[in-house]
Amino acid sequence: MSPVARPSFAIGGVKIRPGQTREMGLPITKLVTGAEVSLPLRVLHGRHDGPVVWVNAAIHGDEVVGVEVIRRVLASLSPRTFRGTLIAVPIVNVHGFMAGDRYLPDRRDLNRSFPGSARGSLAGRIANLMMREVVDKSEVGIDLHTGSDRRTNLPQIRADLDDPRTRALAEAFGAPVMLHARLRDGSLRAAARERGATVLLFESGEAMRFDQWAIEAGVSGVMRVLAALDMVETPGAPTPPPSLVSRRSGWLRAGRSGIVHLDATLGQRVEVGDRLGGLSDSFGKTLRLVRADRPGLVIGRTTAPLVNRGDALVHIAEIEGAEPPGVPDHPDAAEAFDALDEIPVL
């Protein structure tokens, strides 16, 4: 007796048969020209049973790293061998992405608008559509982000590390650092958790840049999570070292306005009082040194040369347990990651 075939997957008013991939657009609104704006999706409905997982990017319209991560992940998958269903949403904030803007046209932050409303603002309608058609059909989600404007981030997972399943998937992702992050009202992660989904938030790289090291870390991590869920075969690439764990982090802020010269690099281990750079005036006179206010690992930094008093300069994560293995100073991010062991490219 032949095994019972998987049922078709229903989404957006269509049904996708097992072993097929389908691209579609879920209508959002129309532009003043009358052109329709749609939420782009690609659904990969595997022949074999397995979980339903979504992966999304560009909730903030200027965060392009995740779009390329999704493209590369999809290029490596086949519905004929895939176990389960993957819903890929490469661009959630379509309006912002087209304009190269973090926010929507009304300046709302889409990631503070979930779960949204079918009759609310533009942000609320997009959030509601994402929840109804994607999140509510899934059990696991991976939300891809980068640093905000003129900030860059070390590859890192932010998640509820006190939840056993979430922590297991965060460990499987294999980012250099994973942070225990509280849920923020209005975020996709918070709204999805309330609906019962397990969600990882990945941060890596800088807005409006295709940082290759950030993309490679994202592709490898997503594939490792799919393997941990038994949706794909375990990658043959070397297993990364265990992620460092942080439950507390903070931004070191400028003590005064000036031109900042940062020596701190992503992945650098620092101690209290370590010199991370300096602030000068336009003639080069040193106004103030920038020193670490806590021990830990540099997981983010500004890329802006001009800063005002109070601006965020360096993000330091305090590492749980033993001191991190020696991470020496390096002139660029790529070498800093090498010190944590090279992230394999799949």
Rank of each mutant, 00 (worst) to 15 (best):
S187G: 09
G221M: 05
A292M: 09
L44R: 00
R167P: 05
R309L: 04
S249T: 00
P238I: 03
P305S: 06
T33D: 09
P235F: 09
S138R: 04
I87S: 05
R165F: 03
A207L: 06
L169M: 12
M231Y: 04
G34V: 09
I11S: 14
A88Q: 08
T234R: 12
V14W: 06
K285H: 07
R165Y: 01
E320I: 07
R22P: 00
I87P: 05
L297F: 06
A207Y: 11
A127I: 08
E133C: 04
S249Q: 05
G66R: 01
D162A: 11
R108K: 12
E320G: 02
E318I: 05
G250V: 05
F210S: 02
I11K: 14
E233P: 01
W213M: 08
K137Y: 05
M178S: 06
G300S: 05
L279I: 14
A168G: 07
V14Y: 03
A207N: 02
E203S: 01
A292Q: 07
P115S: 10
D101N: 13
D274T: 04
A197C: 15
M178L: 15
G141Y: 03
D101W: 14
D185G: 14
P305R: 03
V140M: 07
G310Y: 00
T85E: 01
D136T: 03
R151V: 08
V69C: 02
V307S: 10
E271C: 06
T81P: 02
L306M: 12
E23C: 03
D274I: 06
L144Q: 01
T286M: 11
P7R: 12
G141S: 02
V64E: 00
G147F: 08
S78A: 10
E216T: 12
P238K: 08
D263M: 07
G116I: 02
A35Q: 12
V65F: 00
P164H: 00
H315E: 13
P27H: 00
R182M: 12
A172S: 15
R269H: 11
M98R: 15
R224V: 10
E133S: 05
A334P: 00
A35D: 14
L340P: 02
G25D: 11
V245F: 02
T85R: 04
A58F: 06
A333Q: 09
A123W: 08
F202P: 05
